[in-house]
């Protein structure tokens, strides 16, 4: 086996480890919402190729108000769904759309576009 082949194999192993680490194990940036004076937990979320922020930490039992603004025309992200809260909204391009609900139980709830290409997570504590 030539050195080049060994190098390619080793690169393959390194890449595999990197992919697994980066997509599954690396810690994600969490955005913790603060509770405003009125008890509302608010966040503005930008929709462009993904949700920013995409991991949102909120407190249970307090209303959450999320304002989505979609800044792309790709039809994929035209809808955002919170299946666990039975919430969904059409996101016309450039128009802020607000979703409001109160998570009552702690847990991790996903949100996503209709076909699941863009994903985010709502962590209720």
């Amino acid at each position: 086996m030539s050195n080049l082949q060994i190098f390619v194999i080793l690169s393959g192993i390194v890449l595999t480890v990197l992919i697994v680490w980066y997509f599954w194990f690396a810690p994600r940036v969490q955005t913790r919402l603060t509770v405003s004076a009125t008890g509302m937990q608010e966040a503005a979320i930008l929709v462009k190729g993904g949700y920013s922020p995409d991991v949102i930490v909120v407190q249970k039992g307090r209303p959450v108000r999320l304002t989505f603004t979609r800044q792309e025309s790709s039809a994929c992200s035209e809808q955002v769904l919170f299946p666990d809260f039975n919430q969904n909204a059409l996101l016309p391009e450039g128009e802020p759309v607000t979703l409001e609900f109160t998570p009552e139980k702690a847990g991790e709830y996903g949100f996503q576009c209709q076909m699941g290409m863009l994903r985010g997570k709502l962590i209720v504590e």
Binding site: Y22, G49, G50, M117, R119
Partner: peptide
């Protein structure tokens, strides 16, 4: 742009 945005969010599609 989609791939890069997803990459930043540690996801791939």
């Amino acid at each position: 742009t989609g791939a890069w945005a997803a990459f930043k969010h540690r996801s791939a599609n």
